[in-house]
C-alpha cells in the first residue's frame, strides 16, 4: 500500500486514490487535424518505463482532486507529487 502525498491533503493510503495513467498526455488541440495514426497514438499508446514515470492520480474518496505523481515503477518509490498545471520536477 503506497503512501501517496496528495498536494492538497498530505500523505494518505493508496486505497483512497484512483490511478489515471500516464500524465502529460494532453487532449490534442485539434483532433480533426490529426491523421488516423497520430490520433491512435494519443488514444492507445503510453510509455511503460522501468524507472521514474509521471502519472495521474485522483484523491477520489477525499478532496477529489486530480494531480500528478512521479513514481519509480521499479521500486514503487514516489519521487514527487505536484498539482495540475504545475511543472513537474526534473528527474535525472
Amino acid at each position: 500500500m503506497l503512501l501517496i502525498p496528495c498536494p492538497w491533503c498530505g500523505p494518505r493510503d493508496e486505497a483512497e486514490f484512483t490511478y489515471g495513467g500516464q500524465a502529460h498526455v494532453p487532449y490534442p488541440r485539434d483532433p480533426a487535424a490529426l491523421t488516423d495514426e497520430e490520433w491512435a497514438r494519443y488514444l492507445f499508446f503510453r510509455d511503460n518505463p522501468k524507472g521514474p514515470h509521471a502519472e495521474r492520480w485522483c484523491h477520489t474518496i477525499s478532496c477529489r482532486r486530480w494531480f500528478n505523481v512521479v513514481r519509480d515503477t521499479a521500486t514503487n518509490e514516489v519521487l514527487a507529487a505536484y498539482r495540475i498545471g504545475e511543472a513537474g520536477p526534473v528527474i535525472s
Binding site: G20, C58, R65
Partner: peptide, 13 residues
C-alpha cells in the same frame, strides 16, 4: 460524475 470532474480538472480548468 468522475468523468466530468476529470475533464474539468485536467483538460478544461
Amino acid at each position: 460524475l468522475d468523468w466530468m470532474e476529470e475533464w474539468l480538472q485536467t483538460e478544461w480548468p
